[in-house]
């Protein structure tokens, strides 16, 4: 029975019984792994840190019994290395962290390793637990994830005709097409959104301070929602930001 030792972050957690939990872990060398942690809810079990919470990073020992994709693996040991306690001080940090975990869970496959994405998530959780501007940190992670899973949209030219620059004309974004559409190419596409954010703000290494940050987040959120086939769990704080960004968008039209 192979045993895996790996660093992992808890993406999802479901209380399975009075004492056991089912967890979705994002491990560094094995990718997303679904495990059952028998007895994890009893604090007396010495092989688990007392209780395993969401968004914790820890050292996991996992027993894999069957053909990997077909069964839950068993978490036999868990030692928390970081709980990112600063996340719990502010709702925006907490919501941003949950959002980051949800998009990782939604866009990675079981047993498909992404060590760089794991490290990026760990860095993001650490940064979020201290930052006063979680939206900036979250946008950076949205972009890292899209690059890592190979689904980053093309934002430097029209994906249909290849033309650039766009000048002052309206620019559209299509998640299905994988990037920007110019005014001439957009009528033939059903799935698209008028872009209110300058492409430069979307691709800049560091988002300019005067950029419409909520608008950048909204476009990446739209793209991620399309890729995941559902809306990522934004939480109350980011839902309010998205509502404000969209109402501003509608007023501008």
């Amino acid at each position: 029975m192979p045993m895996i030792h790996d660093t992992a972050i808890v993406l999802k957690r479901l209380d399975f019984s009075e004492s056991s939990q089912i967890l979705a872990l994002f491990s560094k060398r094995h990718g997303r792994v679904r495990v059952i942690a028998k007895g994890a809810r009893r604090s007396t079990k010495k092989r688990f840190s007392p209780g395993i919470d969401l968004l914790e990073c820890g050292q996991a020992v996992i027993s894999v019994r069957h053909a990997r994709q077909e069964a839950l693996a068993t978490l036999t040991q868990w030692a928390t290395s970081s709980s990112y306690s600063g996340l719990r001080d502010r709702l925006d940090r907490l919501n941003a962290a949950q959002y980051a975990a949800d998009i990782v869970a939604g866009l990675t496959e079981d047993w498909d390793p992404h060590p760089q994405l794991h490290d990026a998530l760990a860095r993001t959780l650490a940064a979020l637990s201290e930052t006063d501007r979680p939206l900036f940190t979250l946008i950076a992670f949205q972009r890292s994830l899209l690059i890592e899973v190979g689904l980053s949209p093309r934002l430097d030219h029209c994906v249909a005709c290849g033309r650039t620059p766009f000048g002052t004309r309206d620019i559209y974004f299509s998640s299905f097409e994988g990037g920007l559409l110019c005014r001439d190419c957009e009528p033939a596409r059903v799935e698209k959104r008028l872009l209110k954010v300058l492409p430069a703000a979307l691709i800049a290494e560091e988002i300019p301070r005067d950029a419409d940050v909520a608008g950048v987040f909204d476009i990446l959120h739209y793209h991620l929602s399309h890729l995941m086939g559902r809306t990522p769990a934004a939480g109350a704080f980011f839902e309010a930001i998205l509502r404000r960004a969209r109402s501003k968008d509608q007023r501008a039209r």
Partner: peptide, 16 residues
């Protein structure tokens, strides 16, 4: 946790 040795406390408990 009251009555539990320090060595059994998790990182989260100790941080708090």
């Amino acid at each position: 946790a009251v009555g539990s040795p320090l060595e059994y406390a998790s990182v989260a408990m100790l941080e708090a």
